[in-house]
Design a protein around this nucleic acid. Structure first.
Length: 289
DNA sequence: CCTGTCAATTAGACAG
DNA sequence: CTGTCTAATTGACAGG
């Protein structure tokens, strides 16, 4: 479990996965329907940003992920030791991801159980090794993947968060699981990753919000101070005008451009290009920071 | 239509 | 007993 969590955290940085934010919320989806796991090549710190920036605009979706996958070669040859998953059941499952499901569809665990047992396939036998729980009583326990199986799946997930049929079959064979189980594992793993990422995003946005609130408060205060400054003539007059000031200090009126033709020492900076008459004088006060 | 993915949900296993 | 984790199911949807 712990290892699981660590891996999860790890892969979070590897594969930013929360993509279907359209469903989560804030903005109506454009048209993108499924997730993409963008920018795995980016540094994790950047990924977060990129994902935050892209999560709505990117419509890649599953197709995208799939495309990405195609470039990655299938896992590996099935280990010699692997008790070669039965091709028959494998094929059946592969052809229709839900086939196993729907056939089993009866739902009640007990019923499904019967199905499971009927199908000699690996699922349980696979998980096997250390769990020597002999449940001959008929009350089948829920399958728990072995540590080895989980770690292999995790490794694979780090490589690619979605599987091609080929990869799925290879993994299933390697792990002595049914393809459907591998598929479900990846599906749930993506969901977990997304959930985790959503939590991370939430924290990040929350911090952003807090920072902006603070900044806003600070700026409001500054504006108030500047306004107060403007309202007290003495203070206002005492202020030494900034060098960029183009207002005539004697008449308190905006000086004509004529002032600059001979250009004293320093020409008006480009910033002063903005018509001074349009700017409240206090804006030129030296920033109080 | 088929296939694959996702969101939502159910339910078993297990730790506290 | 309760909460958490996670395997598994279901139905909707999108793309080819």
């Amino acid at each position: 479990m712990l290892m699981e969590k660590e891996d999860l955290a790890l892969s979070l940085s590897l594969s930013s996965s929360a993509n279907r934010f359209d469903r989560l919320s804030l903005v109506p989806s454009s048209s993108s329907s499924s997730s993409s796991f963008p920018s795995r090549s980016l540094p994790s710190s950047c990924q977060h940003w990129s994902r935050l920036l892209l999560f709505r605009s990117e419509g890649g979706g599953a197709g995208e992920a799939r495309r990405g996958l195609r470039t990655i070669d299938v896992n590996q040859p099935p280990p010699a030791g692997a008790a070669a998953g039965r091709p028959d059941s494998v094929e059946a499952d592969a052809s229709s991801p839900n086939s196993a499901v729907s056939s089993v569809g009866g739902k009640r665990p007990a019923e499904r159980e019967a199905e499971h047992d009927a199908e000699p396939s690996c699922s349980r036998g696979a998980s096997d090794e250390e769990e020597g729980d002999g449940d001959g009583d008929g009350s089948r326990k829920k399958l728990r993947l072995s540590k080895d199986q989980s770690s292999v799946l995790e490794e694979s997930f780090k490589e690619h968060t979605t599987l091609s049929t080929k990869q799925k079959l290879a993994l299933a064979k390697q792990l002595n699981l049914r393809p459907r189980q591998v598929e479900v594992w990846f599906q749930n793993r993506r969901a977990r990753t997304k959930l985790k990422q959503t939590e991370v995003d939430y924290e990040f946005l929350k911090r952003c919000c807090e920072n902006l609130t603070e900044e806003n408060r600070r700026l409001q205060k500054e504006v108030q101070e500047l306004r107060a400054l403007k309202l007290s003539p003495q203070l206002y007059m005492q202020m030494t005008p900034p060098t960029t000031l183009t207002m005539c200090p004697s008449c308190e009126r905006v000086s004509k451009p004529s002032f600059s033709t001979t250009s004293t020492t320093n020409p008006p900076p480009s910033e002063a290009a903005a018509p001074r008459s349009l700017r409240p004088p206090f804006l030129d006060a030296p920033p109080q920071r």
